[in-house]
Design a binder for these strands. Structure first.
Lengths: 251, 251
DNA sequence: TTATTATTGTCGCAGAATGAGACAATAACT
DNA sequence: AGTTATTGTCTCATTCTGCGACAATAATAA
C-alpha cells in the first residue's frame, strides 16, 4: 500500500480511515504497442509499489477508489473495476514500510497504523496514457509508467496483484467484448486504425492474432464507426480511421 | 454479516478479529433441479441473512473463509471462490443488527463493534446438497436451504451479494469449463446421468439448452468417464452414468 | 510517368463448431 | 407383442474461424 497523504496524516494516524483496509491500483496505459502500469518509487529506497490509498469512514468503497485514483492520475470518469481482495498475512511485512518512512524522516512507533496488517482491495483501471498526469504521493518521489514486461521488483505481494489484474483484464476482454466502447476506449486515442486496435488486443492477450479474422470480427460486432482515411505518409494504402460508436443501447 | 460466535465473543468484542471486515457466503447447493443457497433466520425477527464470519488477526483471508464455511457446513475441501468485496455505506444499518441482538437478549452499547460499519468480502461456494449439515450460529435459530428463485427478504445488501455471486458463477461456468471436474462436481452426486448434468447447467444459466448439442459438447471435452447404465425403473431406455475423470493433468 | 514497396480491405475456401431436427435403440409397462 | 418415454447418435444446414490470396492504393524511387 502507498498513499496520497500529507506527513501530518501519516504521523497522526488514520482515524478518518477504515483501519486495516487499503486499496491498490493496477493502472493500465497503452503506448507504442506496450502495456504499461503506474508505479511509485519510494525515496532513497529503490522500492517500487503500486499506487494505493485508504477508505474514509464516511465513503463508499468504490467511491474511495475513484477518489484516490483521481488524486493519482488527475483523471475523472475513469474505467475502474474491482477485481480481487488480497488478505494473506505474508503480504504484511513491516520492514519495508518502516524503511520507507525512515527514509522520509519519520520514525514510526512499533505499532504505527501503517505498519500493521492490511487487507487490500485490488482495482484495475484503463486510462489514456497521454492524458494521465502521474502524481507522486508524499512518501514517494516518482510516479511513472513502467512496461508490464519489464517491471522493477515490487514490494510485498504487488507482483501477484499485477498478475491477477492482468488475468482479469484478459478474461474481461473476451467476456465484455460487447459494450467495449465504454471499455478499452481509454487505452486508445479517440480515433484509431484497425491495426492500432489489433495491436492493443495482441498486447493485452499476449499473443498474435490473424489480421483478416480480427478485422472481420471487429466489423461484424457493429461497435465501430468508420471515418475518413488516415494518410500517414507511408508508402502504402491509407487505412481507415475508426471510432467506437456512441449509441450502445444494444449490441 | 452473521457469525459463528459464542455470546461471550459477541459481548466482549472482536479483539481477535480484524475490525470492520467481514465475510459473507453464498453457498450454492443443487437439488431437484433447483439451485439453493444457505440462509440464516434470526431468532424472533423474521430477518434472513447470508452466513458470514470474521477474520482472525493471525489468519489469511482465504483461510478464514475456509474455516468459517467449514464451521457452517461441516464440510472441508469445499470449492470456494472469492468474487467481490462490498463496501457501500448504505449496507451498514445498525438497526436490524441491534434488533437481532436484542431479540437474543443482548443490549449492545451504542458503539458496539457489531453495529459499526463493515466491509464484507463475498465468497461463493459449491457444495453437495446431501452432504452439508447446516449449523445455525449463536444469533440465529435456523440455517437452511432456500430456493434461489424464492428467497425471503434479506437484510442489508445481501440480495445484491447473491445477485453478484450468481453472475460470477454463470461467467465462471463458461470460462472454466475445462477443469470443471474440480468444480461443479460438488453440486452433483458422484455419478450422474447426462440429463442430470444438463439440468444443472440449465438451472445455473437460467435457460434451456439443446439436448444433442449439450451431449456432444460434454463428450467432446473429454472430462467425463462413462460408467454402467442406470436402470431407473422408468419405461424407457436406461441412460449411462458418468463421472468426472480423475486425471486432469491437462484439458 | 512509370515501376516499386508496404500495407490495407476484402474475398474465398476448408475445417470446426453449433443449431435443429430425425431416428433407431431400449427399459419398463400394458 | 405393442406402447411409451427417454436416450445415444447421426445428419444437414448454418455459422464461425484459420489461413491464405489478391487487388487497391499511398508514398517513394527510377
Amino acid at each position: 500500500m502507498s498513499h496520497q497523504l500529507s506527513p501530518e496524516e501519516i504521523s497522526f494516524a488514520g482515524v478518518d480511515f477504515l483501519p486495516g483496509l487499503a486499496l491498490d491500483f493496477v493502472v493500465f496505459g497503452f503506448h507504442q504497442s506496450q502495456l504499461k502500469i503506474l508505479l511509485l518509487e519510494y525515496r532513497n529506497t529503490g522500492l517500487f509499489a503500486l499506487p494505493g490509498g485508504f477508505i474514509r469512514q464516511d465513503e463508499n468503497l468504490n467511491d474511495a477508489a475513484r477518489r484516490v485514483l483521481a488524486e493519482r492520475t488527475s483523471l475523472t470518469d475513469i474505467f475502474l473495476e474491482q477485481f480481487y481482495t488480497f488478505g494473506d498475512l505474508a503480504r504484511y511485512d513491516a520492514a519495508p514500510m518502516r524503511a520507507i518512512m525512515e527514509a522520509k524522516g519519520i520514525t514510526p512507533t512499533e505499532d504505527h497504523w501503517l505498519l500493521r496488517r492490511f487487507v487490500s482491495v485490488g482495482y484495475y483501471a484503463l486510462i489514456d496514457f497521454t492524458k494521465a498526469i502521474p502524481i507522486p504521493d508524499s512518501l514517494s518521489d516518482t510516479c511513472d509508467w513502467y512496461e508490464l514486461t519489464a517491471l522493477p521488483p515490487l514490494i510485498q505481494d504487488h507482483r501477484l496483484i499485477v498478475q491477477k489484474a492482468l488475468e482479469t483484464l484478459r478474461a474481461d476482454l473476451d467476456r465484455k467484448l460487447i459494450g467495449f466502447n465504454q471499455w478499452a476506449a481509454p487505452l486508445l486515442s479517440d480515433m484509431f486504425t484497425m491495426a492500432d486496435l489489433q495491436r492493443l488486443y495482441e498486447t493485452i492477450l499476449g499473443q498474435p492474432l490473424r489480421r483478416s479474422s480480427f478485422q472481420r470480427k471487429m466489423l461484424s460486432l457493429g461497435i465501430l464507426e468508420r471515418l475518413d482515411k488516415k494518410y500517414s505518409g507511408g508508402a502504402h494504402k491509407a487505412p481507415y480511421l475508426y471510432r467506437f460508436r456512441a449509441d450502445t443501447t444494444s449490441g
